[in-house]
Design a protein around this nucleic acid. Structure first.
Length: 463
RNA sequence: GACCCCUUCGUCUAGUGGUUAGGACACCGGCCUUUCACGCCGGCGACACGGGUUCGAGUCCCGUAGGGGUCGCCA
């Protein structure tokens, strides 16, 4: 079937969603900003719309290439790709999309044009060198997809002076103006942003109308607060995205956790891959109440994602976290990591946890050695060495059976054999499954480490 | 000072007039186990308060309190 004419196209085509994330380069990406970006991105992907990235770099002092990189890299790390926006950190450089420039610092002429039009219509006027917008004096109703119809009355100060500055006396346009003009020019259909902008939305709606434009739909999402309910600022625990990047968290875990702050799938789902989030995310399920950031749940979520990561990504994460595998082979490295993956809660703990796999001389925890290598364990340990030396297959199951059989034969607890073996192989109390770790280490290394342990026992006997 | 939003376990939340108020994190027990985790079982723990409306209210209305936000030539 085909259809003819523009009329039919216009009337039958569903409105294509265009959302945006418009951060200013402050040098860090706030976790609340990341969540705003995420909700916008999820909505775009859910509806098949466009996600636009726009950099609000009107504050020239803080505006550095590094600060822009923080935003770009943060979003990329989270996997939030933009359909339109900067291609790099140069405001005058390349960009993606035909509604640019996507840096406000490059859009001066566009703003000037609209300000001129407002002045001509008598909706803006000069006052002490600045330009003010002639704001309506009546209450404005804000239709909000999250908060409902919000009737915004004037505050007492606004009663005194309802008109607000849209261009400073130094010629720079202010946030309210540029934000509205950009959303208008870029064809933004849904403004999804923090609830801290709700009150100001009255100004924005008035501005849209003054510009002869229908305002976009608004969805003001709840804020993310500290665990004590106070406002989250960059210094607070977990408040900055780069903190999570630097500790080599799993980005999908951050996305998953953030998605659950202020939005709910309405059932008991907790762990959700991004594809499921896209599938299920929508504005009606967004909450109205502010949420507090819970570092512990974030860490739990990270662990849950970490343990199910494909080995190649797990290994990559380990390398990024600075792990040194020496000259071990790929097979050895991956076999070793497999025994650690479901045990280590944070990738940062991995280095210490698996160190014994990648060193020549085991670093021994003396407190553990004192117990494990005590004289009473020596006889069994010597016999265990013999058993392992002659074992046909150096695999976990045969080792376990052999060890248990020996324990029974000697009439000792399994622990009495396991403790010295573990201490000999790893030097520490905590670690992967003993049989698994020995299989990875291989017979040669294991027997060498047993011999080293035996030497220690002899030494302490004579001492 | 004014205006706006919000209020269910400590935290994130489910709940759209009739529920023993459910789940997750955290915490505490137990089981499993060579350690540590995982897993399983169990426990602790909430409708901010006061009025209405109703046969019946966590759910609807009003008020109070508390929290958050905004009112800038910051964004």
């Amino acid at each position: 079937m085909c259809c003819f004419g523009e009329t039919r196209w216009l009337s039958s085509a569903p409105m294509s969603v265009r959302v945006r994330f418009a951060p200013s380069p402050t040098g860090h990406l706030h976790i609340g900003g990341a969540r705003t970006a995420l909700f916008n991105w999820l909505y775009a992907r859910h509806t098949g719309g466009q996600f636009v990235l726009r950099i609000e770099d009107t504050d020239e002092e803080r505006n550095t290439p590094e600060a822009i990189n923080v935003i770009l890299e943060g979003l990329r790390w989270l996997g939030l790709d933009w359909d339109e926006g900067p291609a790099g950190n140069d405001p005058a450089g390349e960009s993606k999309g035909d509604r640019g420039p996507y840096f406000q610092s490059q859009r001066g002429e566009i703003y000037a044009r609209h300000v001129e039009a407002l002045k001509e219509k008598g909706l803006a006027y000069e006052h002490e060198g600045a330009i003010r917008f002639r704001m309506q004096r009546e209450a404005i109703t804000i239709p909000d997809l999250v908060c409902g119809e919000v009737v915004r009355e004037l505050t007492d100060r606004e009663q005194e002076q309802p008109d607000f500055v849209i261009v400073r006396s130094d010629g720079k346009p202010v946030f309210h103006l540029v934000n509205v003009i950009d959303d208008l020019e870029m064809g933004i259909t849904h403004v999804i942003r923090g609830e801290d902008h709700l009150s100001n939305t009255a100004k924005h709606i008035a501005l849209f109308r003054a510009l002869d434009a229908e305002p976009p739909a608004f969805a003001h999402i709840p804020l993310i607060l500290n665990s004590d309910g106070s406002k989250m600022s960059k210094r607070d625990d977990g408040a900055s995205l780069d903190g999570w990047q630097q500790t080599h968290c799993v980005p999908e875990a951050v996305v998953n956790y953030l998605s659950l702050l202020g939005w709910s799938p309405k059932d008991d789902s907790q762990m959700m891959p991004v594809a499921e989030l896209i599938e299920r995310f929508d504005l009606p399920q967004v909450n109205r109440a502010n949420a507090r950031f819970d570092v512990e749940k974030m860490q739990w979520m990270n662990y849950e994602h970490l343990r199910y990561l494909p080995m190649d990504r797990y290994r990559q994460l380990a390398v990024e976290a600075g792990l040194d595998f020496g000259n071990a082979t790929d097979d050895y490295i991956e076999a070793a990591l497999v025994t650690c993956q479901n045990k280590v809660k944070q990738i940062g703990d991995l280095a210490e946890y698996c160190a014994f796999y990648f060193c020549d001389a085991v670093e021994v925890d003396e407190a553990m050695a004192a117990k494990a290598f005590s004289a009473e364990h020596k006889e069994g340990f010597v016999k265990l060495r013999e058993v392992f030396a002659n074992l046909e297959s150096f695999e976990p199951e045969p080792m376990e059976s052999a060890l248990k059989a020996l324990a029974e034969e000697l009439d000792v607890k399994i622990r009495a054999l396991v403790m010295p073996a573990r201490c000999a192989c790893t030097g520490v109390k905590i670690g992967p499954s003993l049989y698994d770790l020995m299989a990875v280490l291989g017979r040669e290394r294991v027997l060498t480490r047993f011999d080293e342990a035996l030497a220690r026992m002899d030494k302490s006997e004579t001492a």
